[in-house]
């Protein structure tokens, strides 16, 4: 049995897939509510159902406009399925959908204290390579703790939004969304530094 009607996707008269319009969004195509933790099992089930009906393979015989419409709608569906499938892409999409401006990631800098600690670390491991492993590990665990905290912070904002639907939570989320990205890039730089020094993780 179908989880939802096909009419928003397939024209009842001509049987062609409907063109993608402004009313379509990545949640609505799966009959899902726009929030942070969509029921992914239900989304997958619906994705399979719709794919069966809309995939270009179903229109190979018709070709022409039907095929074009199918390519367009199926591309949209694929993009929607992928976006909802990952926390990060879903977060960015939902903010955009709700019209919440996200500051550019270039404008976001790590807190001064952390940045200084990072520069100190680079200097000190160059000067005292023998104790480098330990110091790198120390900084690494500091990053992990921060990452954990940020992650929990973002997740709680998402929960609050899901419960209340209040825009204020989205706006706070938008401001903090990049704290994760500098932590990730710092963790990557740390790995690079480890590689350059030829130091393995102790723990």
């Amino acid at each position: 049995m179908l989880a939802g009607p096909l009419s928003p996707h397939l024209c009842a008269e001509c049987g062609f897939p409907q063109r993608v319009t402004v009313v379509d969004n990545y949640f609505s195509v799966f009959d899902s509510v726009s929030k942070f933790d969509p029921d992914l099992a239900a989304v997958q089930k619906r994705f399979y159902e719709l794919s069966r009906a809309l995939h270009p393979d179903r229109f190979a015989k018709l070709g022409g406009q039907a095929m074009q419409a199918s390519l367009e709608r199926m591309s949209f569906l694929n993009d929607a399925y992928r976006t909802l499938g990952s926390k990060q892409t879903l977060r960015a999409y939902l903010l955009k959908l709700e019209g919440v401006a996200v500051p550019s990631d270039r404008a976001v800098r790590p807190p001064l204290e952390l940045a200084e600690a990072w520069f100190d670390l680079q200097d000190s491991v160059m000067e005292n390579p023998e104790s480098a492993a330990e110091r790198l590990d120390e900084f690494g665990s500091r990053l992990s703790v921060l990452e954990c905290e940020t992650h929990e912070g973002l997740a709680s904002l998402e929960r609050e939004y899901n419960n209340s639907g209040e825009r204020a939570y989205l706006e706070r989320l938008a401001l903090e969304i990049h704290s994760q990205s500098y932590l990730t890039s710092m963790a990557r730089d740390l790995e690079r530094l480890r590689g350059r020094l030829g130091v393995k993780k102790v723990s």
């Binding site: 190979a60 015989k61 018709l62 070709g63 022409g64 406009q65 095929m67 074009q68 390519l71």
Partner: peptide
């Protein structure tokens, strides 16, 4: 443009 010529027949 159309991607494939109609082939229904």
């Amino acid at each position: 443009a159309h991607l494939h010529a109609p082939k229904s027949t």
